[in-house]
């Protein structure tokens, strides 16, 4: 009963990650054959790489227009109708970042503009639920790791 033995061995926990990786590898091989049709009509498109920095934009690469607290920046969201304050966060600059962007060209100042800036618009507003999950994942992982660490790794002499 060779088949039976094979079935038994497939059910061994230790082998399963390896089986999974082989299957996944086989499926991925198909990726070389599949026509990779990239649809260039994407949401939230960004300018050509390095374009803003060569245009000497102090807010490169995250400049999307707009005036802080007055005018929204340009954002191509999926459902603009569900996001009333759309573009405002993109246009927002913190006082620090306004200061930095006035003095130098070569700092991608939109990083200093956090909170605010384009990625924050996506992360906290239009796709905020993703961030909620993401931070929950991180929190759960830490809960698990720290619980295991406290109860097993550190107090190992107690049991």
């Amino acid at each position: 009963m060779r088949l039976g033995r094979l079935w038994n061995s497939l059910a061994t926990p230790k082998r399963i990650p390896r089986v999974f990786s082989i299957i996944l590898g086989l499926v991925l091989l198909a990726g070389f054959i599949v026509p990779l049709t990239y649809n260039d009509n994407q949401l939230y498109p960004r300018p050509t790489p390095q374009l803003q920095i060569s245009e000497k934009d102090p807010l490169a690469p995250y400049d999307r227009g707009g005036v802080p607290l007055k005018e929204p920046g340009i954002v191509k969201a999926q459902y603009p109708n569900y996001a009333p304050a759309e573009g405002m966060i993109t246009g927002y600059l913190s006082p620090i970042s306004i200061g930095v962007s006035n003095t130098t060209l070569y700092y991608g100042t939109s990083i200093y503009s956090s909170p605010g800036g384009l990625i924050d618009e996506i992360l906290y507003y239009s796709r905020g639920f993703d961030t909620f999950l993401e931070s929950s994942i991180l929190m759960m992982a830490f809960v698990v790791a720290s619980w295991v660490a406290i109860h097993f790794t550190m107090r190992r002499r107690e049991d």
């Binding site: 091989l29 260039d40 920046g73």
Partner: peptide, 30 residues
């Protein structure tokens, strides 16, 4: 310069090599 209407052709042209790189790396790892 701020926001183009479609994704820039540079990114489109890099898509294929990028995906191949990723698949290769993943395959090696797997």
């Amino acid at each position: 310069v701020l926001v183009p209407s479609v994704v820039s052709p540079v990114v489109v042209s890099l898509y294929l090599p990028a995906v191949f790189t990723a698949i290769l790396a993943a395959l090696i790892g797997l």
